[in-house]
Design a protein around this nucleic acid. Structure first.
Lengths: 395, 395
DNA sequence: TTGTACGCGTTATCAC
DNA sequence: GTGATAACGCGTACAA
């Protein structure tokens, strides 16, 4: 608190720590020699202008690299600005320019392991343009969603990314009316009116089913996700289509409803294992549910993959842990965030009337240790020196 | 795109989607009857004032519930505001009031499973006051950190939370000079000048060691975290103290350096198992490293907890998965975020000269399946019907 | 209740 | 070509 800034304690003792408090008069009245700002209050463009002996307009132009300012003057302004630590107030320039250099990122639940990776991708791109990210966690509640959108619009955000959700019609309309570019991720706007980034759920699910079929599975269960998030229906539809295409067992009791949580995967697996005729494989609409299923099967003493194969979707970070070692469909998460941010920035910079674009990323199959031919002699779920573990892992 | 807003396509066709573009003249010139804003441009306080037949000052007062406005007028203003969808521009009121109703949240890596839970706690509290969260992901890079702080200050944020990092002296000073309240989480400011939320690492580590000792372990290894994040040194110091107190084997080769990543836990375990005299238990400074160790031990064919016990720290969500089932020290993550946000909001609202406060949360021991007496007949890592899994899990 | 100064940059217009 | 002047963006707070 008392590094090389003089009279710190005194200033604080007078309540000068509070911004915009009383120091105004001192500052605006440029005192003889230097016109340096009164300590504690942040310098304004007027301070800097006075200090450089030019007009505020010139300062603005100089800092913005406008052509109508002599190189000499520009450098002077630059130097002095650095000296006194001048930075333009975002509020002021935001008010004037109608922008805020920040973009709104609306997510359902940041604590879902899928989300932070996407956020990371977004942040990375946005950061390059020195824009800020306003994180809005909606908990999938309609009112919270609406309130956040309101707030973002009031802040004049430059753009908005909505992850695994849809805005209701009213919110959508407000965003459009404000002319704010919007990119939706994982769920398309009902009217296809916005830029979109997603994954080819169809082929992802298809890859999983094809793989299971190639192993010899004919009776494959599916754990559905919740409609509200991501493209749960896409994935289920793709599953049904794949079942059709392969002429697999279409028993409707093999499709159970989950909600993308680990718990729901747990109970889904339990109910599937309670069926008189069990499936030989379980495909879950996301990794969390697949992991939940894995846990339930473990508790039930059912061997994976010897007795039942399990496949997830998303490839979250921990799926590759040797003890989980989940076969899954990779969802390029960071690339998703990256693509969304790119689309958004392009839209912000460019022509906003061009028709909406889509980026559909390719999923890929990650074969790990939770899949094997049905009823087969179980093989070890991972390379390892012999003689260690028992049959539990399928040895 | 074409719900009940008339002439949408035409408006867009004329490039009217771009904010603050040309519509100004139309709007400010209040036309006879209603003075409703030109479609497309957002209404200002002047529009609303004209519409209500009062001054903008009265509108402002009415919406702010100031006492100096007749109830009748207030209701009229409120109603009309809702009708035309008036919301004050944050930039304008921010400029005037020197605030932004947003708080900066500086994290090292949002993709670290520890972080989103804390963020969730912060968001929850901040949301109640309808403030926004600006997420700054620094990747632990000094320049990025500094640039973000700069940007946050330019935005006149109301307050700032820094998670598991320290700002360098210059940044610290800037924040202090701007009078922006700051709460540090998991790492104290070197000069103890800010509000702080953390966990009692001392007693957390102590609980873990005590527990291992109570099981009969005498040779306990420790996987250190990286200095840059969290209180790695606290935890290591606590470990050393506990080793002393219990008179355990103080062999320095039992302390290996990690970096909080799963990979580092993996290699730490491998190097520990390569020792001529192996430890009987491994305590890691966070769960990720503990899980890495678990994976390595699995690959090496070393049984957990039969041959080696493993304890983590943090209790991340997936630690309780039945297949991981990690014994660990719980770090109340959401409560941490909650407490940090509360401290911050109090500081924002209240007296900023009061001395800094600290909140130190209590860790707790979560006994799961990765711990057992050394060399003991292994017990199952979790309840389950008999006869299922082999000895792998320690049956 | 209202008029108006103010917060702080940016940009269009104008002068040299 | 350089640079100054002034209007402007939009609320808020204080004096009237």
């Amino acid at each position: 608190m008392s590094r090389n800034r003089p009279r710190e304690e005194q200033a604080n003792g007078q309540g000068d720590g509070v911004p915009g408090n009383g120091a105004t008069a001192v500052r605006t009245a440029a005192n003889g020699t230097a016109a340096a700002p009164a300590s504690g209050a942040r310098p304004t463009i007027l301070d800097l202008a006075a200090l450089c002996g030019v007009s505020p307009a010139t300062v603005s132009n100089a800092l913005a690299d406008k052509p109508n300012v002599k190189a000499e003057t520009r450098d002077l302004v630059r130097r002095k600005a650095r000296e006194i630590g001048y930075h333009a107030s975002s509020a002021a320039r935001g008010l004037r320019m109608g922008r805020s250099w920040s973009i709104g990122l609306v997510v359902g639940d940041i604590a879902n392991p899928f989300v932070p990776d996407v956020v990371r991708g977004v942040e990375d791109v946005v950061w390059r343009e020195r824009k800020n990210l306003i994180l809005c966690n909606t908990d999938f509640q309609a009112e919270k969603k609406t309130a956040y959108v309101r707030s973002l619009l009031d802040k004049q955000i430059d753009g908005m990314i909505v992850l695994s959700q849809i805005l209701d019609a009213h919110d959508m309309e407000r965003v459009a009316a404000a002319g704010i570019p919007l990119v939706t991720v994982n769920r398309r706007a009902p009217d296809f009116s916005t830029d979109y980034v997603g994954i080819d759920n169809q082929s992802g699910v298809r890859m999983a089913v094809d793989y299971l079929v190639s192993l010899g599975h004919r009776r494959i269960a599916f754990v559905k996700g919740l409609f509200r998030s991501s493209s749960a229906d896409d994935r289920f539809a793709a599953f049904q289509a794949a079942v059709q295409a392969h002429g697999l067992d279409g028993d409707p009791s093999l499709a159970v409803q989950g909600d993308y949580s680990m718990e729901s995967g747990d109970s889904a697996a339990r109910s599937l294992m309670a069926l008189s005729q069990r499936p030989t494989a379980i495909l879950a609409a996301n990794d969390l549910m697949a992991l939940g299923a894995l846990g339930a099967l473990h508790d039930l003493g059912i061997r994976v993959p010897a007795d039942v194969s399990v496949v997830g979707f998303d490839n979250i970070q921990l799926a590759e842990h040797p003890l989980l070692n989940l076969t899954t469909i990779n969802h390029p998460k960071r690339e998703t965030g990256d693509a969304a941010a790119r689309l958004l920035l392009q839209r912000i910079a460019g022509d906003r009337t061009e028709p909406p674009r889509s980026v559909v990323l390719k999923p890929s199959l990650i074969v790990r240790g939770t899949t094997a031919p049905p009823q087969a002699v179980p093989k070890p779920r991972r390379r390892r020196p012999a003689a260690a573990r028992g049959t539990a892992e399928g040895g």
